[in-house]
Each structure stands twice: as structure tokens, then as C-alpha cells.
């Protein structure tokens, strides 16, 4: 096992897939010089035709990636969540809808890698955590890795998957170190994490926390702190929101009777909302306390650190939510 930084894990996944499959190519803004770090050294290995710096034209190059995928390429687009707004029409009217609308004729193995830069004074225009908006729209698979190993394994799976995928790369994790298995130690000698399989990070019996992306580490820290107080918390990371592994969550709630969901997205119609509604519909009789959502406040992301620090789920907020479920 090697200790690997989150950004390096992204880089490894792309590099391995580009080596394995000539139809994989990458495009985006300033990727040749790797200003965000994930595309380092790709140009020198794969050349200009497979590593494309685009004009500042998201709608154009998102659409171009979609079109290339229709005819047999496997494009990987690098972008930021906040720049996806510019290209929403391509993502929704084309990527999400084509296959169904054309009666299954269209296959779109295209991956959009969207960085989420929140929590670092980037202000409202650069801090979007927009995965729930895409969950509402059928047709796009949605991945939110929470650690380097899952980042690598899920991105590799996304590149091989035949459906359009958005991988939401949590910027708060870019510097995170974690163990990523060496290929030689793995079955098939590569790290592939399947979609739709949640991962249980802590087992517990009193309360379940389902956490997403950057909130997973906070949930784990919460569980470890509460263990000292004698509260046993189970921590589940769904890893992919579409498809969503509801079985693992429902079974956990059946055991604990309590559910807290920690989601860095805005609270209204968040991933947390959807998970809460699934458990309310299908796991209601297991619940012994109201479900608690810990998500971002329903305001835009303020620039100033004195306000931004109050917006997102953190250990104190998640801890308080767990304790609310334990009252009465």
C-alpha cells in the first residue's frame, strides 16, 4: 500500500486508463500545464491529440466531448462545478437525454471531472457543490469520492462505464493522504471501485451517519469522538449518489434506529433530502428518532472566512445532530 495524495490518485487513474485504452483522451482549460494539479505529465506521455487545452468555451467543448463519445471515444473533461453552469444545456439536453430519447441507440461514455472548491475563500462563483441538482435529472451517474483510494478506483470505473458520469472532486480533500493499494496486490492488478456500493467506515449500533464527499472525514471524526462518550456510531459513505446503495443504508438504520445525513450541498433538495426521503419511505418503522440533515445553510457561499466557516457541516454540527437523535 502506498500513501497517496488525492490529486495524485486522480492523476494515476487518468494515466492508467489512457495507457490502457487509446480512445481515452482528456480536454479542459490549462490542463497541459496542470494548473489544478490532476493532469500533471499527461502531455509529455500522451501528446497533444489526447491532451487538449480548450478555448474558454465550456458549452462548446463539453458538447464536443459528448459528440466524440457518441462515436466511440472516451473523453474525460476537466472542469469546475461552477463552470458547468455555462454548459448546462449540453449536460442536460444532450448528455443526460440522448440515449433514452433515441431509443437506446446512443451510448455516451463521457466523464466530467468537476472540482468543488469550497471552504477556502473562493466566494459564491467558485464554491458550488451541485451534485443534487444533477441527481434530479435522470441520465447522469454521479460520483463523490471521499478519499484517495476511492477517487482512483471510482474514476477508473467511470472512464470505463458506458454512461455519462460526473465525478465531483471535493477540493477540501485535494491534499488528503490515504492508502491506495498497489496494482500488483489487486485482483486483475488494478483498482476498480464499483458504482452503487456504499462503504462502511465505522461500524456502530446507536446511530447511522451517511456522509458525502468532504463530510465523510467529519463524520468519521465525530464517530471516533462519540465512541469515547459511549455512543456507537456507524459511518456510511455512499460513494456514488447515482446509482445509490440504499440497501446498505436501510440495513444500518434497521440496526441503529437513528439517521444523520451530512452533506456539503445546500440543504434544500440536497442529496441528504433524497436519502432522508428514501429512509422515511422504506425504513420508517426502524426509526426511533427524527432523521437529521446536516447540510449547508441555504445561502450563497460568502467570501469572508468569518461567515464561510458557519456554512458547511462540521464535527460540532454533526455531533449535535447525533445527540439530538439520542434524546428522549
Amino acid at each position: 500500500m502506498a500513501q497517496t495524495v488525492f490529486l495524485e490518485a486522480i492523476n494515476q487513474a487518468i494515466q492508467e486508463e489512457m495507457r490502457r485504452d487509446e480512445s481515452v483522451f482528456i480536454l479542459g482549460e490549462d490542463i497541459r500545464r496542470a494548473i489544478y494539479g490532476a493532469t500533471a505529465d499527461l502531455l509529455s506521455e500522451f501528446g497533444e491529440k489526447r491532451v487538449l487545452d480548450t478555448p474558454l468555451s465550456e458549452e462548446g467543448f463539453f458538447g464536443a466531448a459528448i459528440g466524440a463519445s457518441l462515436v466511440g471515444m472516451r473523453p474525460v473533461v476537466e472542469t469546475l462545478t461552477s463552470f458547468m453552469w455555462v454548459a448546462m444545456d449540453q449536460l442536460i439536453s444532450q448528455a443526460a437525454k440522448m440515449r433514452y430519447m433515441f431509443g437506446g441507440q446512443a451510448t455516451l461514455p463521457v466523464v466530467f471531472r468537476a472540482s468543488m472548491f469550497y471552504g477556502a475563500g473562493s466566494a459564491a462563483h467558485h464554491s458550488d457543490r451541485s451534485y443534487p441538482m444533477f441527481m434530479n435529472m435522470p441520465g447522469i451517474k454521479i460520483i463523490v469520492p471521499s478519499n484517495p483510494a476511492d477517487m482512483k478506483g471510482l474514476l477508473k470505473t467511470a472512464i470505463r462505464d458506458d454512461d455519462p458520469t460526473i465525478v465531483f472532486e471535493d477540493g477540501t480533500l485535494f491534499g488528503m493522504r490515504g492508502e491506495v493499494p498497489d496494482n500488483a496486490d489487486l485482483p486483475g492488478e488494478e483498482l476498480l471501485v464499483p458504482f452503487g456500493e456504499a462503504k462502511v467506515f465505522r461500524e456502530g449500533t446507536d446511530c447511522t451517519i451517511v456522509a458525502i464527499g468532504g463530510a465523510v472525514n467529519h463524520a468519521i471524526a465525530t464517530a471516533d469522538q462519540l465512541a469515547a462518550e459511549g455512543i456507537s456510531v456507524e459511518v456510511i459513505d455512499p460513494r456514488t449518489l447515482v446509482p445509490f446503495d440504499k440497501q446498505t443504508v436501510l440495513e444500518s438504520v434497521e440496526k441503529t434506529g437513528r439517521l444523520v445525513i451530512a452533506d456539503p450541498a445546500h440543504k434544500v433538495c440536497s442529496a441528504a433530502s433524497e436519502i432522508a426521503s428514501i429512509v422515511a419511505e422504506e425504513g420508517f418503522w426502524s426509526l426511533t428518532a427524527p432523521i437529521q440533515k446536516v447540510a449547508s445553510e441555504q445561502v450563497h457561499i460568502p467570501y469572508t472566512p468569518s461567515l464561510e466557516k458557519h456554512v458547511y457541516p462540521d464535527v460540532p454540527k454533526i455531533t449535535a445532530a447525533v445527540k439530538r437523535t439520542m434524546e428522549g
Binding site: 459564491a124 450563497h300 467570501y303
Partner: peptide, 8 residues
Amino acid sequence: KGKGGSMH
């Protein structure tokens, strides 16, 4: 009021 920052 500190909400926008350098770019806004």
C-alpha cells in the same frame, strides 16, 4: 460587506 471578495 465581505461577501464578495476580490473577484466580486
